[in-house]
Design a protein around this nucleic acid. Structure first.
Lengths: 217, 217
DNA sequence: ATCAAAATTGACTCATTAGTCAATATCAGT
DNA sequence: ACTGATATTGACTAATGAGTCAATTTTGAT
């Protein structure tokens, strides 16, 4: 078993160590995070951390996997509670629900977003592989289809030349880029959109309304 | 005069040193760039670099200023060559022209984009200030108005409830986020959109077409 | 209580890096 | 050629950080 020394520790201790590590990586990024700081904050010796994980890189990859799994779980749990049966309403509802569900996991969300946006060169290849595997395992395609269900797009109302694929592509683009944009604002502490999704949802709503009118009729 | 020891060097030498530094910072980011590598590649001693710039931070800020000025210049030069008188056509033309104009300055473009996207904490405050000042000096507002000229939006054709401001906001959002997205692809060497703007322009065109239909009539 | 295995420590190594400074080389004016 | 000023060097310092390991503590079985 990989990391068996670590895994056999009591759950509370494991979680505390991971939490500290996530905080540090989220705050400083991979390179600038010091294992000395992690160990002293977590109240364990340096030797022990390396006994558990062998290397900083392994610790980081473990965290990526751990956080990704947890957040995917939360996202999945939320996705079935969506009520709306209109394509665009549904997306707004989904974004809002997801935001709410993830609001207790701000550091984790920030950590993961950072992994995607600035994968440290030292671990880029391994991360790619790991996320690929995990997105297969957890059915990223399935989630995508729940989030942007093609069958809710009213084909007959589409403008000539417009396709469902293009609708989905543009909508996903808007949602993803908006998330990234506000993530950046949040990282620079200019806005906390997990606390108050108002501004974010307003801008998203404005854009989606334009998209809706842009693809239909 | 700031950095007078450096400024009084022959132009060619100055440019070579700056070029090397830009390359290194663009490739590695602020933290992971080593002054040892810069000096050895530039063929000068370490002491000399610090004689010129006092600190790594100063060198970085100097580069931000230098690159930002040069690229803004190039952008300004291009902006008057735009022919199109349709709001959306004009934007596509502008993006393409700008892309072409900046294609000999790939490293610089990447460096600057990186400064915006991941400002190193150690210099974040100074950068903010510097860019603020420079955007005032070089008339960022002016450029913005040339790129997204409100007077080319046909007010009478706008849907009820739609405003010119919202059109501009959404259009700018799409253009900026597309640039950021492809910048990231380029950084990960998955696509070179300065060499071949085809894919980029296709996606941008698709989106802008939806926006156009979304705001008019 | 004893003892072997496992957990844990923290001082140490080795590599790296920003920044310094005394020594040396170059140059300009006489 | 001489000299003072300026340009340039590169070995050195001090700090930091990943990873190691011999020594110590804890644990659990008998």
């Amino acid at each position: 078993m990989l990391y068996e020394a670590f895994e056999k520790q009591p759950q509370a201790k494991k979680e505390f160590i991971l939490q500290v590590a996530i905080e540090e990586f989220a705050k400083n990024g991979y390179e600038k995070t010091s294992t000395d700081v992690i160990t002293s904050r977590a109240g364990i010796s340096k030797g022990l951390l390396f006994h558990y994980f062998k290397s900083k890189k392994n610790l980081y990859l473990y965290l990526v996997s751990y956080v990704s799994e947890r957040l995917t779980e939360k996202t999945l749990a939320v996705i079935d509670h969506i009520q709306s049966n209109d394509f665009f309403e549904r997306i707004k509802e989904a974004v809002l629900l997801k935001q709410q569900a993830l609001s207790p996991y701000k550091q984790e969300a920030q950590f993961l977003m950072d992994v995607f946006l600035h994968p440290p060169k030292a671990v880029a290849a391994e991360i790619e592989e790991l996320l690929q595997q995990q997105s297969a395992e957890y059915g990223a395609e399935f989630i995508q289809n729940r989030l942007y269900p093609a069958e809710l797009i009213v084909e007959k109302k589409l403008r000539p030349g417009m396709t469902k694929e293009r609708v989905i592509q543009m909508t996903a683009f808007v949602v993803e880029q908006m998330s990234a944009k506000y993530q950046l604002l949040q990282q620079n502490k200019q806005y906390d959109f997990l606390e108050d999704p108002g501004l974010f949802m307003k801008e998203l709503g404005d854009y989606l309304e334009i998209v809706e009118h842009g693809v239909y009729e």
